[in-house]
């Protein structure tokens, strides 16, 4: 158990270093990464859940509108302009915090279920799912970096979940970083440094690949209509849904990380629904199925979004 604080520190350093919102690929992924990985989740106990921020009816027109500027001299004029800017920014930030807090309120009902979704729960379910089938992803995964001797790469994952206000949709956003096992020593050293809060002489670990995987799972959408009898996220299925999305997000990473260099094609507009909310995003399409589109977003993230299902039509053909 004493390893956990060290592990935490280690992971915090890694994600602070790859905190950029843009996907990175430092070098081409070595061939030996195709087989086996070890896996660590950054948040050891508390996986983050938040309410979906629906910007449809949100106006960011905060700030302070009018202001009288003192014009005795250039100094006082500048001071009043700066004061106006500071007050305006503060009001704006306060409004955004309030908006976020209000969006999270409804999740208190699901607190007990949220507490059961731990890193151990997600990792165990993922490994079980890989072992329990002839997976299209030819990998094996072990739960901790301590087992690195049998793996050929180490995945650090930081999943977080968003639930829509009508609880018909759950979204995973999983920040992932893949390290060469040669970097594990650096990872640990970085963790120790962080723990000591002292020297900063050594280098920070460098991921071979880092990106964010986003999967939107609409439970209830049939066309554009979310009916009263629709399936919803609840205390009974929150854990299973989260686990399934975590599983899918890692598969998304493992199947798409090699393709990163080849997707600088023409961006197109992709339309989809999050619950009953219509959404549009620009991206380069990587894969289309009868009910999903996987694309590379303008931020470089890999995103899988639902489409109106045409699976039955395709089956008939």
């Amino acid at each position: 158990m004493s390893k956990f604080p060290l592990l935490f520190s280690c992971i915090a350093v890694v994600f602070s270093s790859c905190g950029s919102t843009v996907a990175t690929k430092e070098e081409s992924i070595p061939k030996e990464f195709v087989d086996a990985y070890s896996l660590t989740i950054a948040d050891e106990n508390n996986i983050n859940y938040s309410g979906y921020l629906n910007y449809d009816n949100y106006s960011n027109q905060a700030g302070v509108n009018g202001a009288m500027y003192s014009g005795y001299n250039a100094g006082s004029f500048l001071a009043t302009v700066l004061a106006h800017a500071m007050v305006s920014k503060s009001v704006d930030a306060k409004k955004k915090r309030k908006f976020k807090a209000e969006s999270d309120e409804f999740l208190s009902v699901y607190e007990s279920s949220i507490n059961t979704v731990t890193s151990g729960f997600l990792t165990a379910n993922f490994i079980e799912s890989l072992e329990g089938e002839n997976s299209s992803v030819p990998v094996s995964v072990v739960p901790s970096m301590e087992a690195h001797q049998i793996g050929k790469g180490h995945i650090l994952s930081q999943p977080s979940f968003v639930v829509t206000q009508d609880v018909t949709t759950i979204i995973i956003s999983n920040r992932v970083a893949l390290f060469n096992h040669g970097e594990l020593g650096v990872l640990k050293a970085a963790g120790e440094r962080k723990k000591r809060k002292g020297s900063s002489s050594s280098r920070t670990p460098k991921p071979v690949y880092s990106n964010t995987m986003v999967i939107i799972n609409n439970l209830a959408t049939e066309g554009d209509v979310v009916g009263d009898n629709a399936v919803r996220v609840g205390n009974d299925n929150l854990g299973a849904l989260s686990s399934e999305l975590f599983d899918q997000s890692l598969r998304l990473m493992l199947t798409n990380m090699d393709a990163q260099d080849d997707v600088d094609g023409k961006a197109e507009t992709i339309k989809f629904h999050i619950g009953s909310n219509f959404r549009v995003e620009r991206g380069v399409v990587l894969e289309k199925t009868c009910d999903r589109v996987v694309f590379k977003t303008l931020r470089g993230w890999i995103k899988s979004v639902p489409q109106e299902s045409q699976c039955s039509e395709q089956a008939q053909l």
Partner: peptide
């Protein structure tokens, strides 16, 4: 982008 004189008001 809306402004109040020199200062941006909102996003």
């Amino acid at each position: 982008r809306n402004f109040a004189n020199y200062i941006p008001v909102g996003d």
